[in-house]
């Protein structure tokens, strides 16, 4: 799966966020979006995953054969972003179970438990999310994003709130996904994460 965007611009009323951004990411590639705070990295991520419409320019999801229509993009992508939260009144297991069901995935509780263990969470934990640390919530968001094994992943500041061991794990996980042919869009300013990129788009604000 390949994502291409061309001459993207976004303005909110009189405020121009960015004018003309182009880029692409394909299987096994990591496209890094960087830039100062307020330069529009998260806005660009929301546009690329279809939650915001660009003021100008075009975004295309391309499969091997043809273009994927906008209303089917959600099948192709997973996302971790600070602006998108999970349900605080549910436990980690209940959250994953809910997202599996609304994606019509037939995943057993054993499989969901394995996914939780994979991101370093205890599947037996009965605490609702409100009782989780921010780092643990971030790990659960990562598990949710990868639940349906999407070919395209958007990671907006994925390492934020993770402890050093968590950041090491994250690096290994991203590299592993890249080796498996996933297309990854990474919005970050973290120096370590910047080095993972195979291509860069710099938003200058």
């Amino acid at each position: 799966m390949r994502l291409e965007f061309k001459d993207l611009g976004k303005r909110f009323d009189d405020r121009v966020i960015f004018r003309k951004l182009s880029g692409s990411v394909g299987p096994g590639e990591i496209l890094v979006l960087s830039g100062p705070n307020g330069s529009g990295k998260s806005t660009l991520v929301l546009m690329l995953c279809g939650l915001l419409r660009p003021t100008r320019g075009e975004i295309r999801y391309l499969s091997d054969k043809d273009e994927i229509p906008r209303n089917a993009w959600r099948h192709e992508l997973g996302i971790v972003a600070p602006a998108m939260r999970l349900y605080e009144e549910l436990t980690g297991m209940e959250n994953l179970r809910f997202f599996a069901r609304i994606r019509d995935l037939r995943l057993s509780d054993e499989e969901l438990a394995r996914r939780l263990r994979e991101v370093g969470l205890d599947p037996g934990r009965k605490t609702i999310l409100r009782g989780y640390s921010t780092g643990m919530q971030q790990r659960l968001k990562i598990a949710q994003a990868a639940l349906h094994d999407p070919p395209l992943l958007f990671l907006d500041e994925p390492g934020s709130n993770l402890d050093p061991a968590g950041q090491d794990w994250l690096e290994g996980w991203v590299q592993e996904l890249s080796k498996r042919g996933k297309s990854i869009v990474l919005a970050t300013n973290d120096r370590r994460e910047l080095e993972w990129g195979t291509d860069h788009v710099v938003l200058d604000g």
Partner: peptide, 10 residues
């Protein structure tokens, strides 16, 4: 509660 985004995408 900022859960609408993930619900929309899922």
């Amino acid at each position: 509660s900022h859960t609408a985004g993930l619900l929309r995408l899922s």
